[in-house]
Design a protein around this nucleic acid. Structure first.
Lengths: 223, 223
DNA sequence: GGGCCGCAAAAAATCGATAATATTTGTAAC
DNA sequence: GTTACAAATATTATCGATTTTTTGCGGCCC
């Protein structure tokens, strides 16, 4: 999300407790270390995260808005449940919203945008795919870099949120699964190429295909 | 938003402090009683709302995710600033997302949906337009009722959020402003008619025109 | 034997106080 | 008169303890 502070560049010492807890839990949920549906007990969390109840509660509140955590009346919090239906919903919505953002981004892009995109692609290509978390981080950067010139911060926030919701399903589907016979790198190169050439329709087509292909692949592994 | 509890049907006594604070502040910000940019001091709020610091902080965190409140590094919170650019952004995004939701809703609607929509329209028509807050509540219900059959809860949540962001600008533009020569009631009737007939394209056209007309009208009054 | 009521344990929500951090004010040197 | 520093003040962030709510269990009535 890069929301509370930009990927935690700030020294850990100046980070507020709330931010630290928020980022930690967020990562734990997205990567599936804390499974869907699990109760999140304040006492347990404040013990394991070595902090007080207030930061924990506040972090959980924030995660609620990211749809990663659900609030139960006055019975605390739990990790948001997953379902195949929701996976499809996220995939669809993501395609729709990213297409909007994409077209706006291409309409406003400049040289700096292109440079940043090329770099993001380069960094992604360099990461060992075995290092799943490291790769995911760069992968997200690449995809968000495509949209970065979009003039609507609110839309970008939505896309960001949907990306994270989606990536959780990718982790849940199983870390060890390879992407079959797909040449994902080639797809990324083709996407980059279309972006650099400013061929909007082609870029859109390739991106949507990229998402739906991954989606179809993952859908079988869920639930 | 109708998020934390459905329009506060629950008796006030069982509402948690956090919810009460959240709903109160939310209403105060949307209606402009607390102006954009104003600092929200914990002490002042906990005094005026007669509660402790924790519920106030938690409510502010939630409002942050609604984009109605901004968090300043470690210097507390303030009401989100407004700008003409953001108003346009919200208007545009709202049109785009509501169109998606609309088409999905019409594709899945049934008799119950139609009945609820007719009722929502009826209730809206009955409220005295002088009672701005009362009218707004029904107005929102009407517009959300159109989208209600949409199968994507996440998209609906986005629309809801955008509606509220937008309505704040309506309040800020000045309560006393009448809508000029426009016959808003006729527009609503035409929208309802298209919906009941399931004429998707016509409904879409009319709704978008409805939004953009209001938008153009308000844009002049902002900033 | 099954369902209902109330009690006890667990957990969440809240409060009041303390520690950490930013902002302002005042003072002195330049 | 202006700038830089430092103390004082204001405000946030956090913690530990208290209050309230929920839940699970066991006995009791039907």
């Amino acid at each position: 999300m890069l929301r509370m502070d930009e990927i935690s560049n700030a020294p850990a010492s100046t980070q507020s407790s709330t931010q630290r807890v928020y980022l930690t839990l967020r990562e734990d949920i997205i990567t599936g270390r804390i499974p869907p549906g699990q109760r999140l007990k304040i006492d347990a969390l404040k013990a394991s995260l070595d902090t007080g109840a207030s930061p924990v509660r506040e972090a959980l509140s924030l995660l609620t808005s990211d749809q990663l955590v659900e609030r139960l009346d006055q019975r605390g919090f739990r990790v948001a449940k997953t379902s195949r239906a929701q996976f499809q919903e996220i995939l669809n919505l993501r395609c729709n919203l990213e297409e909007l953002a994409l077209r706006d981004s291409l309409a406003h892009c400049d040289r700096a945008w292109e440079d940043a995109l090329v770099l993001a692609h380069h960094h992604m290509a360099q990461v060992d795919q075995g290092n799943l978390e490291g790769f995911e981080a760069q992968h997200k950067r690449f995809h968000m870099a495509i949209l970065a010139a979009c003039q609507s911060p609110i839309l970008l926030r939505f896309c960001d949120q949907l990306y994270d919701l989606n990536v959780r399903y990718r982790y849940l589907a199983g870390k060890s699964k390879s992407y079959g016979r797909r040449d994902v790198k080639a797809e990324h190169r083709a996407i980059l190429e279309a972006a650099v050439k400013r061929e909007v329709d082609q870029l859109s087509t390739r991106l949507m295909a990229h998402y739906r292909k991954t989606g179809a692949f993952l859908a079988d592994l869920i639930d």
